[in-house]
């Protein structure tokens, strides 16, 4: 990895942490308790578009670790790590190989669904009781909505980065 990509990585990690923290400090009212927009997903998508796979995972890992320590505590860490890493991996695959099928909005929705499913599986393991079917409809619909919103923002962010050549001189 060259210095330019290092710089992008650091910028994206800082932004991901800041966005996550802001989102937990300024609560956006949600109809369902526990559901949030997941705005840090925007950074993951920008990372997928501009960096190598292992750097994307590194960004998600550091973000989850720092945010867990600063806000939600360690109990939340398995949840955000499982959800974050798995959804990043699935979004990376979709973005790289299924670009004819899915727009960034679709990729983001798939990521949100993966994120929620991973959290349900971790919840089932921790609680030693299946909560899958009960929460599935609500999590599917909320993933659809939040994934679409973050996907929309990601799409315009990627377009602006390209148009203004923000990463062009460092990559």
């Amino acid at each position: 990895m060259n210095k330019g990509q290092d710089a992008i990585l650091i910028i994206l990690v800082c932004n991901a942490i800041l966005i996550s923290l802001l989102e937990s400090v300024v609560p956006i009212p949600m109809p369902v308790p526990g559901v949030k927009l997941g705005l840090a997903n925007i950074i993951t998508i920008i990372a997928i578009a501009h960096l190598a796979f292992k750097d994307v995972l590194l960004i998600v890992f550091i973000r989850c670790l720092v945010v867990a320590v600063l806000t939600k505590g360690i109990t939340a860490l398995p949840f955000s790590l499982a959800g974050g890493l798995l959804s990043a991996a699935v979004m990376w695959l979709c973005y790289k190989y299924l670009v004819d099928w899915f727009s960034v909005k679709g990729v983001s929705i798939i990521g949100a669904i993966t994120h929620n499913m991973a959290q349900l599986v971790v919840a089932t393991i921790i609680l030693r009781e299946s909560v899958m079917l009960f929460y599935l409809p609500i999590l599917l619909v909320s993933a659809l909505v939040t994934g679409f919103i973050t996907g929309l923002i990601s799409e315009s962010a990627l377009r602006e980065i390209d148009k203004r050549g923000i990463f062009a001189h460092v990559a």
């Binding site: 299924l98 004819d100 099928w101 899915f102 727009s103 909005k105 679709g106 929705i109 798939i110 669904i113 599935l136 409809p137 609500i138 599917l140 619909v141 993933a143 659809l144 679409f148």
Partner: peptide, 16 residues
């Protein structure tokens, strides 16, 4: 919205 997006949104809505 690409074809996959539409299929995805429809499938997830019906499934939920």
């Amino acid at each position: 919205l690409k074809t996959g997006d539409k299929i995805l949104i429809a499938t997830v809505t019906v499934l939920a």
